[in-house]
Amino acid sequence: MKIMNTVIDAHDVSKIYNKETIPVFAVNNVHLHIKKGEFTALVGPSGSGKTTLLNLIGGLDNPDSGNVFIEDLDITKLSANQLIEFRLKNIGFVFQSFNLIPVLTAKENVEFIMLLQGIKKSVRDARVKQLFREIGMDDKMDTRPAQLSGGQQQRVAVARALASKPKFVLADEPTANLDSKSASNLLDIMAKLNKDEQITFLFSTHDQRVIDRARRVITLVDGRIVSDTAAVSTKHENANVQK
């Protein structure tokens, strides 16, 4: 049954590598529900399946079993071209190594998704200005990525992910290549955007600073969810209600 306000609903999702030889469960029967406006960290050791799970939720990869619902749509049933269209309209991505397009300026990088969506120039300009103000980089709009620091590039990547107001943002180790000051600054921005624009964030991380800032922490080990702070909170909430 669909849970009210659920943005991401993964049902019994598995992803197996090396099926022909020694099968490895990158993601093993995972059930996951993320509600609108959540700020969730997906944590776990290297190889625990964080990135694979994000890829499955983002429609970048197909699960071997199970279904991924985004709102009420099962994206595992979509064709490759439908998935591209779906990602464009619904998901924002932030990658570990920024992945900005080097030949475009910071402004053009942020504008890129909106251009693909065919959004009018006046609307694009207004949104770009607003986002650059929010990430505190108004003066760097016309700078190419190579001239920006790692932290600045990742802020631009976050702005790009948010430009078209997606249903949720998937961030794969967004602070992995940043120094502590830049990481903290980026987290402030992400938290503020999460609060102000009610955009759902799901990010994988090793970084304790990020984990500390998350409102919900899901721990993966060997492709399975071994703990989820949301479940603990719910139990506490239920206990308080009974009292």
Binding site: F93, N99, I113
Partner: peptide, 16 residues
């Protein structure tokens, strides 16, 4: 390769 992969991930269709 990585950049093109990223563009497809963000929603750039194959025609583009």
């Amino acid at each position: 390769t990585r950049e093109i992969g990223m563009m497809v991930a963000l929603g750039t269709n194959r025609i583009k």
